[in-house]
């Protein structure tokens, strides 16, 4: 797979070349390349256990791996996770990754760890997107509903002022209406200039949002498609069975 040829920009927002990852002796992700252009929403689809989450974990260096990662042309392959966040690469983990014993306010404040002088302004911006969080400020994150937790996870990531936001299954465990709301918020974030790399199981929702799709199966990318080229969701099934 060569994402390079499909993305027009010389220096896209993110370019990953032959990124791979292992868990012990198991090769969870084969050498994989992908591109996210400036202002683009890209989704990664695939069946359970295909390696979608591992791909995001390898890109954020949560799991040790090989390959090169370029962010706006700069080689960031050797940077640890926290330094990638400083560059503007922020990920919302599967399961939301909140600090459950801390309040909503504290979660957001910690989200602004890299921008200590802008916490109030950023929090205000988060409340404009998710007004419900303002009402829950002093509640512990662990006591929120699933939808509210996802809002908090995204809001907390926004506190870090990301330029590229990666999300791992943001609709997981949410009612369809809430999942739709969350994903439409991602569209709004994208219109504000944030690039988005979205891993999602719910293909119909993701396809409505994304401009391009990578299909991953058995730890390797098996297809790269523009969403407007996909006639129906069932078109993707043959790649899943690759």
């Amino acid at each position: 797979m060569t994402g390079r040829n499909t993305a027009a920009e010389a220096d896209p927002l993110l370019r990953a070349e032959d990124v791979s990852a292992r868990y012990g002796h198991v090769q969870a992700l084969q050498p994989t390349s992908l591109v996210v252009a400036e202002g683009e929403i890209v989704t990664v689809l695939g069946p359970n256990g295909a390696g979608k989450s591992t791909l995001l974990r390898a890109l954020t260096r949560l799991v040790a791996g090989r390959g090169r990662i370029y962010f706006r042309g700069e080689d960031v392959s050797g940077l640890p996770t926290h330094k990638l966040a400083r560059r503007g690469i922020v990920m919302v983990q599967e399961g939301r990754g909140l600090f459950p014993q801390m309040s909503v306010r504290e979660n957001l404040v910690i989200g602004g760890y890299l921008q200590p002088g802008e916490v109030d302004a950023q929090m205000k911006a988060v409340f404009e997107l998710f007004p419900r969080l303002r009402e829950r400020l002093d509640q512990t994150a662990g006591s929120l509903s699933g939808g509210e937790q996802q809002m908090l996870a995204i809001g907390r990531a926004l506190m870090a002022k990301p330029q590229l936001l990666m999300l791992d299954e943001p609709s997981l465990g949410l009612a369809p209406r809430v999942a739709g709301e969350i994903l439409s918020t991602l569209g709004e974030l994208n219109r504000r200039g944030i690039g988005i790399l979205l891993v999602e199981q719910k293909a119909p929702l993701a396809l409505k949002l994304a401009q391009r799709v990578y299909v991953i199966s058995l730890g390797r990318i098996v297809a790269e498609l523009k969403t407007d080229e996909i006639a129906s969701y069932h078109d993707l099934a043959r790649y899943y069975l690759h």
């Binding site: 954020t60 926290h82 966040a85 400083r86 983990q93 990754g97 909140l98 910690i110 760890y113």
Partner: peptide
Amino acid sequence: ACSQNREAAQLLGI
């Protein structure tokens, strides 16, 4: 934050 979720803390730049 590190005590509650070390990976999430790293992802936020800690």
